[in-house]
Design a protein around this nucleic acid. Structure first.
Lengths: 202, 202
DNA sequence: GTTTCGGCATAACGATCGTTACAGTAGGAC
DNA sequence: GTCCTACTGTAACGATCGTTATGCCGAAAC
């Protein structure tokens, strides 16, 4: 289809503008006009590509989810040691953070508090949570953990802690004294080692 | 002043309604009309008590901050052992959660992503972050930690992780398999013990 | 009695929101 | 040339937002 190829620039610009504004200023706070102005796109063109603002928000979350998964896949492909693969989620955060420049914490968490209950974007929030839970569990099994659910839950706790501290540091300056990501990775490494040494240590 | 006493009911009802709606539906998403309807208060009365919506939001955050500090104070007063006092932040979370019924994660984190940069409510978000940082550091010193900043940062990481996991569980059902608070307290206890045993373990 | 004051209800204000309609233009296909 | 397609610019729609104004009620003060 020539349609898809020709329509790419406008759609791409819209998604790029939406990603910046939605992440920086919040989804509810940024109007459609602001996205249109930043993208340099007329209203009619936007509504030709997306059914409405909700659809644009859902597309933004979908792209964000895909980018995060791609980043984790890359970090995962570079590791062979099971423990390194288990801890690769933290490497992926560092890579995603420096590549996409998301200094304001997890965009999905911010979106979760803003979206009304029936919003179509919730599908990608769920997908993000499920990807984290399922993949960490699989990697825990690969690493030979006797309680993979338990180990995955601990890593999830640390992972979410990192994102939350990033979010807090962005709004309250003067707290960025240490790097929560490195700290979480150290804690996780120590915990994984002890969990694999003595299987009863939940 | 009789004014304060007589004006309490309306003001109290407004703050109670604002607390429910702002926390459940988000600050930007809930209009003033919804707060007025839930509180059973007329617009003129509200604008006699608060300069505007921003002032109401700030008052809501102030009250929330005071309630959280009060809860932590109570939990802290029941402990005498330095390590128990250091870990009391998790007990306070449990108490605050069951008392105030905030099943949707940290209200401050949700507010931080919604408030525009110059909003007066930011003062209480900063106060919340500073209370956590400063008090945890003091308690770490009391416990005899050689690196109190380091230990406080670790506890903060786990604390923020708990709140983030609560927020995620609220929006994505089926993830509430385990209790992140108990897990975080166990991890923190183990880390505190090892940090006090060998002071170099950062 | 009257006055005063906190609160209520209704309505309206201007602004902004998401959305749609209408007219017009640049460029490639044939 | 004509046709088609993707896009632009402007304007307007109804709805909702935060805010203000107007008028009325009830109870306590004097």
């Amino acid at each position: 289809m020539t349609t898809d190829l020709a329509s790419r620039p406008a759609r791409q610009r819209l998604l790029a503008a939406a990603a910046e504004l939605f992440y920086e200023s919040g989804i509810a706070a940024t109007g459609v006009d602001a996205v249109l102005r930043r993208a340099g796109v007329s209203p009619a063109t936007m509504y030709a590509h997306f059914a409405g603002k909700d659809a644009l928000v859902a597309a933004y979350l979908e792209e964000r989810h895909a980018a995060w998964r791609r980043t984790w896949d890359e970090a995962l492909a570079e590791r062979t040691d099971p423990i390194d693969r288990l801890l690769s989620v933290f490497d992926a955060v560092a890579r995603y953070r420096q590549r996409e420049g998301n200094q304001r914490g997890c965009g999905f968490l911010a979106a979760a508090t803003e979206l009304p209950p029936g919003h179509p974007g919730h599908h990608w929030l769920d997908a993000d949570s499920r990807l984290l839970t399922d993949r960490l569990r699989e990697l825990a099994v690969e690493a030979g953990a006797t309680g993979p659910d338990d180990l995955a839950a601990t890593l999830l706790l640390l992972y979410d802690g990192v994102l939350n501290r990033y979010a807090r540091a962005a709004t309250t300056p003067g707290l960025a004294a240490d790097d929560p990501l490195a700290r979480a990775r150290r804690l996780a490494a120590a915990w994984v080692a002890s969990a694999l040494r003595e299987p009863s240590g939940s």
